[in-house]
Amino acid sequence: MLIDVPQEYYLILSAMMFVIGSVGVLTRRNAIIIFMSIEIMLNSVNLTFVSFAAFMGDTAGQIFVFFVMAVAAAEAAVGLAIVLALFRNKKTIYVDEVSLMKW
């Protein structure tokens, strides 16, 4: 079932997800969408870990995934709170309009 699909496919899929996430972070202006892109990056990491763990018959990778999910939730909570605080101050969540400090 799992083994029917070669491992390379999982790895290629997760590498693609990672690139999509990174490009999203670099090109999007909306802070919320940037956080969504970061979640895609983290999920690609989860996929890599799970596929390695399954193919090697080792549990450490799956344990790591639990921690990544928990930490991602905490990070999203703090990140959204910070976006909220920023919105109260500047009435915008577009990161290119947040530029009080440069060089």
Partner: peptide, 11 residues
């Protein structure tokens, strides 16, 4: 400035 710093830091 502080909320801007914190946003940049978290991203």
């Amino acid at each position: 400035r502080a909320s801007e710093a914190s946003l940049k830091y978290v991203i």
